[in-house]
Design a binder for these strands. Structure first.
Lengths: 144, 144
DNA sequence: ATGATGTTGACCGGAATAGTCGTGAATTAC
DNA sequence: GTAATTCACGACTATTCCGGTCAACATCAT
């Protein structure tokens, strides 16, 4: 359901949330820190920009930064931007094609709604905090 | 997440639950009633048989029937046999490959667990009842 | 200008999905 | 026993999606 795309994208945004305090962050930095192929990251950043989640400036000392406060960007927004509708069945949310498929829609509807609520409740700020925490932990475990 | 495979399979089983009262139901019948390509249905029935969800007998007046009571087969079981693990992220449930992916596991864990609970709470019996209801409705709307 | 950087879209290989087909094996009816 | 019916299994194909690369172009700072 969620591939590397969504995961990479979220990582990238977390990176911006963490290191974007003073000026834009370069692709190369993000790629290195988050272990994302730089060439691929390109696509993801492009999508995120088109969706208005980040702002990019070019030229030397250019780079990318969050377009809004990290508290105002939810996991749901990010994933729907990158992965499209997260609907587990084609008949939910895709109103264009009248598919013949989908008995049991109502179960999936409940699941889907629950999922969106949960994902919508998590902000980039939350994720960045967790990540900072995690880095601290692993750093400690090495130093012991 | 769920493709035609899972949907077709569930349909087929609902068909068995509905029309399997007296003796086995033939592939061709299922295919016709549920609008599933017969050749493809073959594969699905094979998987369902291997998983012990149905029993098949050949020869004239052979066919397929549920191996257990329709109340004892859940939507979760069916979908997991046909579609594999329903985990939305590779790092949930797939313990073999230590993926580098997956920040935000905990959110997904909650979503995944919720999903499994809901899907596990729905039996083929439930679905068959709903389907009977639905058929009745559409039949009525035509007769008006 | 020029070089560093971002922007875009074309392209590719592999895997999974969605099917089809042909052949064989079991069971029943005659 | 033979024919008819129905499932059983595997090989094969087509299409789509995904992860990822690449090369050409645009733009900005200096």
């Amino acid at each position: 359901m969620i591939g590397t795309k969504g995961d990479y994208g979220v990582r990238a945004l977390i990176d911006l949330a963490m290191y974007g305090g003073d000026g834009p962050v370069q692709r190369a930095e993000i790629a290195r820190r988050q272990h994302v192929p730089e060439a691929y990251l390109d696509h993801l950043l492009a999508q995120l920009r088109r969706a208005g989640l980040i702002r990019s400036t070019r030229g030397p000392s250019g780079g990318h930064e969050l377009a809004r406060d990290a508290k105002e960007i939810t996991l749901l927004q990010v994933l729907e931007t990158l992965e499209g509708s997260l609907a587990p069945l084609p008949c939910l949310e895709d109103h264009d094609g009248e598919g013949t498929v989908c008995a049991q829609q109502w179960v999936w509807r409940e699941i889907y709604d629950d999922m969106r609520v949960r994902l919508g409740a998590v902000s980039l700020q939350n994720l960045a905090d967790r990540e900072r925490e995690r880095l601290l932990q692993t750093a400690l475990s090495y130093s012991i």
